[in-house]
Lab assay of single mutants.
Amino acid sequence: VYKEIAITNGCINRMSKEELRAKLSEFKLETRGVKDVLKKRLKNYYKKQK
């Protein structure tokens, strides 16, 4: 499980701001904020899904 999260986090870290926004809107999450906030939001979402 932790390895999956680590791989997902690595992918998220390599995403551009536009990619992050697209992914967040896909999951109907808030898309406003600076890049670091968007990354954190997406990581938290994936963590809750596990």
Rank of each mutant, 00 (worst) to 15 (best):
residue 7 I to V: 12
residue 32 R to Y: 05
residue 25 S to G: 13
residue 4 E to R: 07
residue 32 R to H: 07
residue 33 G to Y: 01
residue 14 R to I: 03
residue 39 K to Y: 01
residue 46 Y to F: 15
residue 21 R to M: 05
residue 50 K to G: 07
residue 46 Y to P: 00
residue 40 K to Q: 07
residue 21 R to L: 05
residue 40 K to T: 06
residue 4 E to D: 14
residue 21 R to W: 02
residue 34 V to R: 15
residue 12 I to S: 03
residue 34 V to K: 15
residue 36 D to Q: 08
residue 16 S to G: 06
residue 1 V to N: 15
residue 27 F to A: 12
residue 39 K to C: 06
residue 13 N to G: 08
residue 14 R to P: 01
residue 50 K to W: 13
residue 6 A to V: 14
residue 33 G to W: 02
residue 21 R to S: 05
residue 34 V to G: 09
residue 38 L to K: 02
residue 22 A to T: 13
residue 37 V to Q: 10
residue 4 E to A: 11
residue 38 L to E: 01
residue 6 A to L: 12
residue 45 Y to P: 00
residue 50 K to N: 13
residue 27 F to K: 12
residue 28 K to P: 00
residue 23 K to R: 12
residue 14 R to Y: 02
residue 19 E to S: 08
residue 3 K to E: 14
residue 27 F to Q: 10
residue 5 I to S: 14
residue 37 V to G: 04
residue 5 I to A: 14
residue 6 A to G: 12
residue 36 D to G: 08
residue 27 F to H: 15
residue 12 I to R: 03
residue 33 G to I: 00
residue 34 V to S: 11
residue 46 Y to E: 03
residue 37 V to Y: 02
residue 39 K to D: 00
residue 41 R to V: 00
residue 9 N to K: 15
residue 26 E to G: 08
residue 33 G to D: 04
residue 39 K to N: 04
residue 28 K to R: 13
residue 14 R to V: 04
residue 19 E to C: 06
residue 45 Y to Q: 02
residue 40 K to H: 04
residue 40 K to N: 07
residue 11 C to L: 13
residue 41 R to I: 02
residue 18 E to A: 15
residue 17 K to Q: 04
residue 23 K to S: 07
residue 22 A to N: 14
residue 40 K to S: 05
residue 6 A to T: 14
residue 48 K to R: 12
residue 40 K to G: 03
residue 7 I to T: 12
residue 16 S to L: 02
residue 36 D to N: 14
residue 19 E to H: 07
residue 30 E to R: 03
residue 46 Y to A: 13
residue 11 C to H: 13
residue 5 I to R: 12
residue 29 L to A: 02
residue 9 N to A: 13
residue 50 K to H: 10
residue 30 E to Q: 06
residue 10 G to V: 08
residue 43 K to H: 03
residue 22 A to M: 13
residue 6 A to P: 14
residue 40 K to R: 11
residue 47 K to N: 10
residue 6 A to F: 12
residue 32 R to C: 05
residue 27 F to D: 04
residue 2 Y to I: 14
residue 8 T to S: 14
residue 32 R to Q: 06
residue 35 K to L: 03
residue 36 D to E: 06
residue 2 Y to H: 14
residue 48 K to A: 09
residue 15 M to K: 07
residue 47 K to V: 06
residue 25 S to A: 15
residue 1 V to S: 13
residue 32 R to D: 06
residue 9 N to T: 11
residue 43 K to P: 02
residue 21 R to C: 05
residue 9 N to L: 11
residue 8 T to M: 10
residue 46 Y to D: 01
residue 33 G to V: 03
residue 5 I to E: 13
residue 14 R to G: 10
residue 22 A to P: 01
residue 1 V to M: 12
residue 15 M to Y: 04
residue 43 K to W: 04
residue 11 C to T: 14
residue 28 K to M: 09
residue 3 K to P: 12
residue 30 E to D: 15
residue 25 S to I: 07
residue 33 G to A: 02
residue 1 V to D: 12
residue 24 L to W: 01
residue 23 K to D: 00
residue 42 L to K: 00
residue 1 V to I: 14
residue 22 A to S: 13
residue 48 K to L: 08
residue 26 E to A: 09
residue 37 V to C: 09
residue 3 K to Y: 08
residue 4 E to H: 10
residue 14 R to A: 11
residue 47 K to A: 08
residue 7 I to A: 12
residue 48 K to C: 07
residue 34 V to D: 07
residue 12 I to K: 03
residue 1 V to A: 14
residue 28 K to L: 03
residue 29 L to R: 04
residue 41 R to E: 00
residue 4 E to P: 11
residue 4 E to C: 10
residue 3 K to V: 07
residue 42 L to W: 01
residue 22 A to G: 11
residue 26 E to W: 06
residue 13 N to V: 03
residue 24 L to T: 02
residue 5 I to L: 13
residue 15 M to T: 06
residue 46 Y to S: 08
residue 35 K to G: 02
residue 42 L to M: 04
residue 22 A to F: 11
residue 44 N to W: 06
residue 7 I to E: 10
residue 11 C to E: 15
residue 32 R to S: 07
residue 29 L to E: 03
residue 7 I to F: 09
residue 15 M to F: 05
residue 25 S to Y: 11
residue 13 N to P: 01
residue 45 Y to A: 06
residue 35 K to W: 02
residue 14 R to W: 01
residue 40 K to Y: 03
residue 24 L to I: 01
residue 18 E to P: 14
residue 50 K to Y: 10
residue 11 C to Q: 15
residue 39 K to Q: 06
residue 15 M to C: 02
residue 48 K to N: 10
residue 37 V to I: 08
residue 16 S to R: 12
residue 4 E to G: 12
residue 50 K to T: 09
residue 36 D to R: 14
residue 38 L to R: 01
residue 8 T to A: 10
residue 39 K to A: 06
residue 4 E to N: 13
residue 8 T to K: 12
residue 37 V to E: 12
residue 14 R to F: 01
residue 17 K to S: 07
residue 13 N to W: 01
residue 34 V to M: 04
residue 24 L to E: 00
residue 22 A to E: 13
residue 25 S to W: 09
residue 18 E to W: 11
residue 18 E to G: 14
residue 2 Y to G: 15
residue 25 S to P: 07
residue 22 A to Y: 09
residue 24 L to D: 00
residue 9 N to F: 12
residue 44 N to C: 09
residue 20 L to P: 01
residue 1 V to E: 14
residue 43 K to M: 05
residue 14 R to E: 07
residue 27 F to C: 15
residue 49 Q to R: 09
residue 10 G to Q: 11
residue 33 G to S: 02
residue 48 K to H: 09
residue 29 L to V: 05
residue 48 K to T: 10
residue 1 V to Y: 12
residue 34 V to W: 07
residue 34 V to I: 12
residue 29 L to C: 08
residue 8 T to Y: 05
residue 31 T to G: 02
residue 1 V to Q: 06
residue 21 R to Q: 09
residue 2 Y to R: 12
residue 23 K to V: 09
residue 48 K to W: 06
residue 42 L to I: 04
residue 7 I to N: 10
residue 20 L to W: 02
residue 49 Q to C: 10
residue 50 K to A: 10
residue 15 M to W: 02
residue 43 K to G: 02
residue 34 V to F: 08
residue 44 N to F: 07
residue 12 I to H: 02
residue 33 G to F: 00
residue 44 N to G: 10
residue 16 S to D: 07
residue 38 L to S: 05
residue 45 Y to W: 13
residue 14 R to L: 06
residue 9 N to G: 08
residue 31 T to R: 07
residue 3 K to H: 13
residue 17 K to D: 03
residue 41 R to C: 00
residue 40 K to E: 06
residue 28 K to I: 02
residue 32 R to N: 06
residue 42 L to E: 01
residue 25 S to T: 11
residue 33 G to T: 00
residue 42 L to P: 00
residue 20 L to M: 08
residue 3 K to G: 13
residue 50 K to I: 10
residue 49 Q to L: 12
residue 22 A to K: 15
residue 22 A to H: 13
residue 16 S to I: 02
residue 14 R to T: 08
residue 9 N to S: 12
residue 9 N to Y: 09
residue 37 V to K: 15
residue 30 E to A: 05
residue 34 V to C: 12
residue 33 G to C: 04
residue 50 K to P: 09
residue 24 L to Q: 01
residue 7 I to M: 14
residue 8 T to L: 06
residue 43 K to I: 06
residue 28 K to A: 11
residue 36 D to A: 14
residue 36 D to W: 11
residue 12 I to C: 03
residue 13 N to R: 06
residue 3 K to C: 11
residue 36 D to V: 07
residue 11 C to A: 15
residue 45 Y to S: 08
residue 13 N to E: 06
residue 20 L to A: 01
residue 16 S to T: 14
residue 13 N to D: 08
residue 8 T to V: 07
residue 46 Y to I: 15
residue 31 T to S: 12
residue 46 Y to M: 15
residue 38 L to C: 02
residue 35 K to F: 02
residue 7 I to D: 10
residue 20 L to N: 00
residue 19 E to D: 11
residue 10 G to F: 07
residue 12 I to M: 05
residue 33 G to H: 02
residue 38 L to P: 00
residue 37 V to N: 07
residue 19 E to W: 03
residue 45 Y to M: 04
residue 39 K to G: 03
residue 19 E to G: 06
residue 29 L to H: 00
residue 19 E to A: 10
residue 8 T to G: 09
